[in-house]
Design a protein around this nucleic acid. Structure first.
Lengths: 361, 361
DNA sequence: CCACTTATGTGACTCCGTTTCATAACTGTG
DNA sequence: CACAGTTATGAAACGGAGTCACATAAGTGG
């Protein structure tokens, strides 16, 4: 609780490292100015960090006035994190360095009805391949985070899945960690997508975000205070379970009109039957979204998932119904990421873990 | 961002002060053991705090072995905070010291239909009287927090009130601060009640709490991560606004059966008509509660407000319907506080402000 | 009154960070 | 190519904060 002098050093190390991560490469003097520390302090801190492998000294810049300054760079390649989206039809893995820059993608198809062991094996293969083709040693993966549809509890177990066969009860976090002998995490896909939008997408400046994942299945995730909010059992956002909301059959009903993309297209082209179907879908979507909006009153509502590509054809009626149902409607935007958002969210969550647990704080 | 030696002192001062607040009165040696600091450090810190008025030296304990130890006590009476519940029929003010111990209550009735200026004047009078009868100088009130029904935005303005006449648009926080020339805060009543339950009631060990305030009017508040979550506009929890939920008319419908307390009593005594009315009320309540539970998946659901005194007569059907509607139902308990919960929540919120802004951190 | 117990007081010491000033290592210009 | 100008490094002195060890003070209990 209390601190002695070493606390000061820990704090300043953290501050310096963060500054360097933002800068990429920086001289001692510059880091001193940024952090408010003296050059000497920054120097000893960086020498320590270099010894521990977090930071690397880089040859001085040439052709500038004055004595060449010692330069340091954050070793983003000291470790890696992996995000894996385990979906109904595909598995997508993303390997990123400690700056969160993705260095390798790997996608494999998987069948809708694949039993859990087959899906898990495919995920494992994809994860390993993603790392191997990047030429990264498997031991340098420090954390893995899997994302999937369904309810994922705090420990990373799938406690309920209605779409993937045999998926309920799978200990995703444990298994994913086992692939690389590192920390394993798991979370709901909509939650991870929300995290991605907050990290690099359209929700960057919002603290409280509701993300509605609209596709063949409809789900929702949320961020409260900039942090993922899963709730007691990981089921936060599962408003679709409420009969009065009817998310369960909204997509199913739309499907009766044909391929979803085609229905949206037809509606956009003025086909009245398709327009009515989209209208009904938008209304059902809006009821659930309204319940979430009224419950948490977010700064922003992000609509993502495959069907969000329909754009205004879906969004316009959706906004209209939402305005009808809510007191004050937050800004509604579409996701800026496609189907990489879940894997990227996994990268972000794994990175959060690494920053907290390994970089210390 | 970065810190020099004085940061260390600030941290350790904070730690020591917190320890002393928990202990009430403690010797230097004991504080040293608790905080992990050396006796010397604790001593200089406490001498500083004594000089600044936060802490007072207390005559040594007698009749114990060894050399008498210097003892210090937190000066809980250095400042005070005030919580004011501005309700439809009453105004209740609570004055508390810096330990949160209430030293004075003051209650005044107010008419249902009183216009805003009259209600505000009554609140002001109650607040001042509450302080005056306690013999506390008005200048020693460091923060005031008002609680009221309706939507209260971040700045403490009532942005929407459907029950109190002329209430929409009132700058409660500003006015309340003006009464004592100190910081003024304002929040929704259900939110404050939730805070009280988390502070001293049945929600002490829950991080995410939904509080449903059940009375003539039904409202909800919530805590996320132990902190009040108001949302963008302060409307978080206002699920009653959704037609599909029907909280608006739930209470109104119950009222057609007579005085609510009497209806609950009759239902408990086996009157079938009353039982049906309660059943319908419980169901409507449960639909909204289920929406909140599914949205945020809290650790705990607290049922409070006047009608919660009905106990199991209401709670049993409520729980049944909730179980029907939700995936996994959280623990459901009744509030441990009566109608003081809102004023107490005001005390807590004001205290939070004082701790953050004045005690520093 | 003396042994025992417990807390205080003091001085030396360590860490960490800052300031200051001299010095080093470049660029570019006459 | 020497020299002014610029920018960074290196070293030493210093001060704040915390710790440790040990001597000393002020009680209690027989």
């Amino acid at each position: 609780m209390a601190g002695d002098a070493s606390l000061l050093r820990r704090v300043n190390t953290q501050v310096t490292l963060n500054a360097l991560r933002r800068e990429g490469v920086a001289t001692l003097t510059r880091l001193g100015r940024i952090t408010g520390l003296s050059r000497q302090t920054v120097e000893t801190v960086l020498d320590e960090l270099a010894e521990r492998g977090w930071v690397r000294e880089i040859p001085p810049d040439e052709g500038v006035m004055g004595r060449p300054a010692r330069r340091f760079g954050f070793r983003a390649d000291a470790g890696y994190v992996l995000g894996v989206d385990i979906g109904a039809n595909k598995i997508l893995a993303a390997l990123a360095d400690l700056n969160g820059e993705v260095v390798s993608w790997h996608r494999v198809p998987v069948s809708d009805g694949a039993p859990a062991p087959e899906r898990l094996e495919a995920a494992r293969q994809a994860a390993l391949a993603c790392v191997d083709v990047a030429g990264v040693a498997r031991t340098r993966v420090w954390a893995v985070c899997a994302g999937t549809s369904g309810v994922v509890d705090r420990s990373g177990r799938v406690s309920l899945s209605t779409v993937l066969p045999g998926w309920t009860g799978v200990d995703l976090a444990g298994l994913a960690g086992g692939w690389f002998g590192c920390k394993g995490l798991a979370a709901n896909d909509a939650n991870l997508a929300a995290l991605t939008e907050h990290w690099r997408g359209s929700a960057q400046h919002a603290a409280d975000v509701v993300y509605v994942l609209v596709g063949h299945r409809v789900g929702a995730g949320m961020l409260i205070g900039g942090r993922l909010h899963g709730g007691r059992t990981g089921a936060a956002g599962e408003i679709g379970a409420l009969r009065q909301v009817g998310w369960e059959d909204a997509a199913a009903e739309l499907d009766t009109h044909g391929e979803a993309a085609a229905v949206f297209k037809a509606a956009g082209d003025g086909d009245p039957a398709a327009a009515r179907a989209v209208e009904r879908f938008a209304e059902k979507l809006a009821i659930g979204a309204a319940a979430l909006v009224l419950a948490v009153d977010p700064d922003l509502l992000v609509v993502g998932g495959g069907y969000s590509r329909a754009g205004d054809v879906l969004l316009t009626p959706f906004r209209r119904h939402l305005t009808d149902l809510c007191l004050g409607v937050p800004e509604v935007v579409t996701s800026t990421f496609g189907d990489e958002s879940v894997a990227l969210g996994g990268v972000r969550l794994a990175l959060d873990h690494v920053e907290r647990e390994i970089l210390g704080l």
